[in-house]
């Protein structure tokens, strides 16, 4: 299968007054055409910053190194002009907070048509027509009328639909969805995911689904990578990873899912602890302080992400759990 996105050795850090914060500590992964890659991790694990780096959306004090190949072409470090030919057109992104991600001062029409005018060179009328069609595809009723409205006239779920429609206008190869349902009500979450699944079927794009919600991953993803303290700790297919997690952290995550029995959950909470300080990462494995299996090797040697079975890899010194 051809990879849409190939990331190697991606490191992202932020310069702060107190020193550099290493948000992403060198990750390798790829996303295949048409597949959904779930990216899981708690806040601060670097899962969003990976994709902000790829999209060139890092905050001013952030910088990324390594290699990101989109359809075989290096896009990391491209100048803004060159990058703009890719983002919004072949690679699009939707964000966590639909309430603030749309410009409140511009009509939905303006915000949608500008994408088509920019990337496809359409006229305003053509662009408006296609935008309305796209709003229908994300199941917004009365799309033609709604197109002329302003974001504040839409509910949160509707705004996220608008965001999705906007992202898909140019038929991207890759859609990056950064916690697309986190800010929404539970019932609305399900609808949005439904819309995403449907559109992926129609358009055949790949999706990078960033979330801390394992339920969403289970429903949507083909493959998963689990992030911890800026590194990938485990990678594999959804089925394998959920059935037989091989990294202690992944195991902890899965045990914390409510459908498991209560005693297990409370036991996990006692191991809980804190994610490490990214300014000053400890030596060796960064999970070791919270790991119930930690042994002498863990503080000394950093475990590397290594394959251990067909299509699976983990960063842990333990041979198996």
């Amino acid at each position: 299968m051809a990879a849409v996105l190939e990331v190697t050795g991606l490191k992202t850090s932020f310069a702060t007054q107190e020193g550099a914060v290493k948000a992403v500590g060198g990750v390798d992964f790829s996303i295949n055409k048409g597949e959904t890659l779930g990216v899981v991790g708690e806040s601060g694990s670097g899962k969003s910053q990976i994709f902000m780096s790829i999209m060139g959306l890092l905050a001013r004090n952030g910088s990324a190194t390594g290699s990101v190949k989109f359809q075989g072409e290096e896009i990391l470090g491209l100048d803004v002009q060159a990058l703009n030919r890719v983002r919004g057109a072949k690679m699009a992104m939707i964000f966590q907070d639909p309430m603030t991600s749309l410009n409140p001062y511009l009509s939905v029409r303006r915000q949608m048509t500008e994408v088509l005018i920019q990337h496809k060179g359409l006229s305003e009328d053509q662009a408006a027509k296609q935008s309305a069609e796209m709003l229908e595809k994300v199941q917004i009723p009365e799309a033609k009328r709604r197109l002329n409205m302003y974001p504040h006239e839409f509910s949160g779920g509707m705004r996220q639909r608008v965001m999705i429609a906007m992202a898909l206008l140019c038929g991207p190869e890759l859609l990056i969805a950064d916690e697309p349902t986190t800010a929404l009500d539970v019932t609305v979450q399900a609808q949005i995911l439904e819309v995403l699944v449907g559109l992926q079927r129609d358009f055949g794009m790949a999706i990078a689904l960033i979330t801390h919600d394992l339920g969403v991953i289970a429903r949507m993803a083909d493959r998963v990578m689990v992030m911890y303290a800026g590194n990938i700790v485990e990678k594999g297919s959804v089925r394998d990873l959920f059935k037989d997690p091989q990294h202690p952290y992944t195991q902890g995550l899965l045990e914390s899912m409510p459908r498991l029995d209560e005693t297990e959950e409370t036991r996990l909470m006692t191991i809980g602890g804190q994610p490490p300080n990214l300014q000053n990462l400890p030596s060796g494995c960064s999970f070791r302080d919270r790991c119930r299996y930690a042994f002498e090797r863990c503080p000394v040697e950093t475990p590397l992400l290594t394959p251990f079975a067909e299509g699976r890899s983990k960063a842990c010194h333990l041979p198996s759990l």
Binding site: E42, S43, V186, H212, D213, L214, G215, G252, L253, S256, M257, P258, R259, E265, L268, M269, G272, G273, Q274, P275, N277
Partner: peptide, 13 residues
């Protein structure tokens, strides 16, 4: 919902 409880631990004091 299956949110990860790890992230809800009290922040570093």
């Amino acid at each position: 919902m299956t949110d990860i409880p790890l992230s809800t631990n009290t922040p570093v004091e």
